[in-house]
């Protein structure tokens, strides 16, 4: 009787695993086919689209891309923009999290609330004025124009604050009594302790910025200033005439960086995402 029940449970569990593995395949197979088709000729990509190993592997799509667009320049633009945004968000996030955690001041609750509420502001309500400001500053078609409005991030402040909880209060108190200036405490104590958090939160910022599409399309009109998502968008035709092997080659280039970052920092990244949902 007991054995029968255990067998039944095992069977049920296998059923669930089957479902979960199907989900894995649904999520990942498209990416796998994308990478594989990027090494196929246009003809092969149509006639044997579901063959994972290309019959006649070719680098032609990548070479064509390189001829049609200034690929290196576009990769550099994306990297440069994402780097500015990431550094900006880390610096402003650490500074304000430090203030919320260790300074006492009037209206702290209200200011914190105001900062966090900005998560709920839809981009449509700020895009017209921001576009006007960036164009007034003559920053259209520049990475700085894309980065400037995004140099701070409320989610980041929240995550840094949570990370600071793990620093013993007694440690900070003891150095504060010795009249060590705040910036030194931040630089020599807080930052080294939070190093893994800073790396993972920074990685999340970088990946998000690397993939960003909406705001850059408003600011970057000149093809030389394009980032990868904008360049890719140009290869997708709504009329159905997309050259998929080409678009897939560009997409493959585009996913390498986020994938590498995830490969290296996977545990830290998932921990940070998890903690963003907790109280």
């Amino acid at each position: 009787m007991k054995g029968e029940r255990a067998d039944m449970n095992k069977l049920k569990e296998s059923g669930w695993h089957f479902l979960l593995i199907v989900i894995c395949l649904v999520l990942l197979l498209p990416v796998l086919f994308m990478i594989s088709n990027s090494f196929k000729t246009l003809q092969d990509s149509y006639h044997s689209m579901l063959q994972i190993i290309p019959a006649h592997p070719t680098l032609n799509n990548y070479l064509t891309l390189d001829k049609q667009i200034s690929l290196l320049r576009i990769i550099w633009n994306t990297f440069f923009m994402a780097t500015i945004v990431t550094i900006g968000k880390i610096v402003t996030g650490l500074l304000s999290a430090y203030a919320f955690k260790y300074f006492s001041f009037k209206g702290k609750k209200l200011i914190y609330f105001a900062f966090i509420s900005t998560i709920f502001v839809p981009f449509t309500v700020v895009m017209i004025p921001n576009f006007l400001v960036i164009s007034k500053l003559n920053l259209l078609n520049t990475a700085l124009g894309v980065a400037l409005p995004q140099l701070c991030d409320a989610t980041g402040i929240m995550l840094f604050l949570k990370a600071m909880d793990k620093i013993p209060n007694s440690l900070i108190e003891s150095v504060r009594i010795d009249d060590i200036p705040a910036y030194k405490i931040l630089k020599d104590i807080v930052v080294p302790i939070l190093r893994p958090n800073i790396i993972s939160i920074g990685a999340i910022f970088f990946i998000n910025s690397w993939n960003e599409y909406v705001w850059p399309t408003l600011i970057l009109k000149d093809k030389n200033s394009f980032t990868l998502p904008l360049a890719l968008q140009n290869y997708i035709s709504s009329e159905g005439g997309t050259n998929f092997p080409l678009a897939m080659a560009l997409s493959t280039i585009m996913i390498i960086v986020p994938l590498l970052i995830y490969l290296i920092f996977q545990r830290y990244i998932l921990n940070s995402i998890s903690s963003s949902g907790l109280k």
């Binding site: 999520l27 498209p30 993939n211 990868l228 998929f244 997409s251 996913i255 995830y262 998932l270």
Partner: peptide, 29 residues
């Protein structure tokens, strides 16, 4: 957990391209 999270790393433009291929009424899988 590790596998499910992977597509979150990619741009929605890549997602849009992939689905317009998968669901292409003429040449998609």
């Amino acid at each position: 957990k590790i596998i499910f999270f992977i597509p979150s790393l990619f741009s929605l433009v890549v997602g849009a391209m992939l689905f317009s291929w998968i669901m292409n009424p003429v040449s998609g899988p």
